[in-house]
């Protein structure tokens, strides 16, 4: 079991949470409007951050604007607390904000995530911050931002329905196993960021607040708690979350989302929970590796 680290002493010379106050105010105003218009992408003036685009610059800016000294921060990358990206971001905020960090979903007040929703259900008051590479769900169908903005204004999402229909007509099923578009509050088509389709149902009526930050694309959006989030589908082809038909090799879970791990060069493989905190909180199997 993981435990919350004690609060470290922040580095001298940085404002609390790294960003300056004017930037935080700008991001905070964008966040508040995003919560008021669920699923709508609010433009914001993303700053350069001390890490490259694609490593979570949007998520870090959102976390920085939201974070307070009493928060407990958890960061996951594809469900794991112990990968480079997650460890670096956790260490970044413990240095520039002096906040306590944790690997436990239940103990965290803010969870920054790349591409997963934790298995442990969020509770009220918890904030999930997503790192988003491409906030525009229509970008592969309509590359012009001016046009896709208009489509959102008109709630004209026929293009996406046609794309899903063509998938079904060609392959018999929808071809998106991740980043499957959702309708938020019956109004806005939204990219769930590339979380697996398995996680999509967790967004619906979630007790926690979900904030999304896209640094390169300079967009912020949000799903408030207890908000209707439907994965786009058809009556005769309902949305199906995909899960590998195996049990976790370590904890034996048949409910959690699994990663496939190649174990040798002779075709050996095993499936383990993608959510490391969830896996570690369960008793291991007797023959666990």
């Amino acid at each position: 079991m993981s435990e919350t680290s004690p609060k470290p002493r922040p580095l001298a010379g940085y404002n609390f949470g790294y960003l300056d106050e004017a930037t935080k105010r700008m991001i905070r105003r964008a966040l508040l409007k995003a919560v008021c218009i669920p699923g709508h992408q609010v433009p914001f003036g993303a700053r350069e951050m001390p890490l490259p685009y694609g490593w979570g610059t949007g998520g870090i800016q959102v976390t920085s604007a939201v974070l307070g000294p009493s928060d407990v921060l958890k960061v996951i990358d594809q469900g794991a607390d112990d990968t480079t990206n997650a460890v670096s971001i956790r260490r970044f905020f413990s240095r520039v904000a002096g906040v306590a960090t944790t690997e436990s979903t239940a103990e965290a007040s803010i969870i920054q995530t790349r591409h997963r929703i934790p298995e442990t259900p969020l509770r009220e008051g918890q904030i999930l911050v997503y790192q988003v590479p491409m906030p525009e769900p229509l970008f592969k169908l309509e590359p012009r931002v001016a046009e896709s903005t208009k489509l959102h204004a008109l709630a004209d999402y026929g293009l996406m329905q046609v794309k899903l229909y063509e998938d079904i007509a060609r392959q018999g099923e929808v071809g998106t196993s991740y980043n499957h578009p959702v309708m938020v509050n019956h109004r806005y088509l939204m990219s769930p960021s590339p979380i697996p389709a398995f996680d999509n149902p967790k967004m619906h009526m979630n007790a926690g607040l979900q904030l999304f930050g896209a640094g390169r694309e300079k967009r912020i959006y949000a799903v408030p708690p207890y908000t209707d989030v439907r994965s786009l589908d058809f009556e005769d082809h309902p949305f199906k979350p995909v899960r590998a038909p195996h049990a976790c090799a370590i904890c034996g879970s048949e409910e959690s989302y699994l990663d496939e791990v190649i174990t040798d060069d002779a075709g050996g493989r095993m499936h383990v929970c993608s959510d490391t905190d969830y896996c570690a909180s369960r008793p291991p199997l007797e023959d666990a590796p």
């Binding site: 106050e21 939201v66 307070g68 708690p225």
Partner: peptide
């Protein structure tokens, strides 16, 4: 404390608009 005061007020407003 301008930094902490602004942060706690914003968080209260974020919570209020979320609920």
């Amino acid at each position: 404390e301008p930094v902490l005061g602004a942060q706690s007020s914003f968080r209260a407003m974020l919570h209020a608009l979320s609920h």
